Simulated assay, not measured.
Amino acid sequence: MTACDTPPNPRARRVLLLPGWLDSGPGHWQTLWERQGAERVQQADWVWPRRGDWMARLDEVLLADERPALLAAHSLGCHLVAAWAAHSRHCMRVDAALLVAPPDLDKPDLPPQLAPWRPAVRRALPFPALLAFSNDDPFADEAASASLAADWGATPWPLGARGHLNADSGLGAWPEGLARLHALAAGPGG
């Protein structure tokens, strides 16, 4: 049997997409990754997100498949990862997380739909994480992003002036983000 004949590894990692409030639209990098085979974690309510419901849904999706997961979270999805990791008994199913543009939940102009997510869970994550942020994100300044990265034990990844790192940021399919996520899971030198 040659390498080309080798059957797929059933333990191969899957990429789970964790969109934020209101989900991710058609031009968003998460949607483009979904078209490449990543799996979007669907939530029952994107408009009035309930933290406990979102956490339970993530557990459900992780338990439905034996393969380890890589989490690719955007915006409120980053806070989902932190809250879930602080409470779930299934963290060992996650090999790494890419946390992109988490909002500052302490902002005074936070939409009322997100207020129940306060206070932000700030416990260190039990798996490697990379936190990508922009210096002109309207939902979190650099100091807030750096503070979350430090509290979560995530490596900060500043991307300059790119807004909320969404469809309007010009990232397209963002192959660098996906490559960095896989490299993070592979570990040093991997």
Rank of each mutant, 00 (worst) to 15 (best):
D151S: 13
E176N: 09
E60Q: 15
L18H: 02
E60L: 09
P108K: 11
R57W: 06
D109H: 04
H90S: 14
L17P: 03
A3P: 10
D168C: 01
P102N: 12
D95V: 05
A143D: 15
V41R: 04
P188C: 06
S24T: 15
Q36Y: 08
R67N: 04
E142F: 01
R162Q: 14
D106L: 04
D53N: 02
V100M: 05
A120S: 12
R122W: 10
E142R: 13
A85N: 03
D106F: 02
T155L: 15
L131F: 09
P7F: 13
P111L: 06
A186W: 10
A173M: 08
R50W: 08
A167P: 02
T2S: 15
L63M: 10
F139W: 14
A115R: 12
A140R: 00
V121P: 00
F127Y: 14
M1D: 14
R93T: 12
W117M: 12
D168F: 04
M92D: 15
L99N: 03
L18N: 01
R67M: 06
S134A: 11
N135D: 15
W46D: 03
D137Y: 00
C78K: 05
P26A: 14
G153C: 13
R93I: 11
A124Y: 02
D106S: 14
D168R: 09
V41Y: 07
L178P: 07
L130A: 03
R162E: 08
L130T: 10
W33T: 11
V94T: 10
P111R: 01
V47F: 07
A129D: 04
A72Y: 04
W48V: 10
L125F: 11
P7C: 13
N166Y: 02
L17T: 10
G37S: 08
E66N: 10
P10S: 10
A56M: 07
S147F: 09
M92H: 15
S24W: 00
T2F: 11
A140L: 01
G77W: 04
L32F: 07
Q42S: 13
M92N: 15
A161F: 01
P108V: 12
R57H: 05
H28A: 08
T31H: 11
G27S: 12
L98I: 13
D95Q: 15
L159K: 07
L125S: 06
V100A: 04
L159T: 12
W29Y: 02
A64N: 06
E66Q: 11
L130S: 08
E39Q: 14
T155A: 15
E34C: 01
P111H: 04
A101W: 00
G20M: 00
R35N: 05
T155N: 08
R13A: 15
L110K: 03
R122I: 11
Q36G: 14
W21P: 00
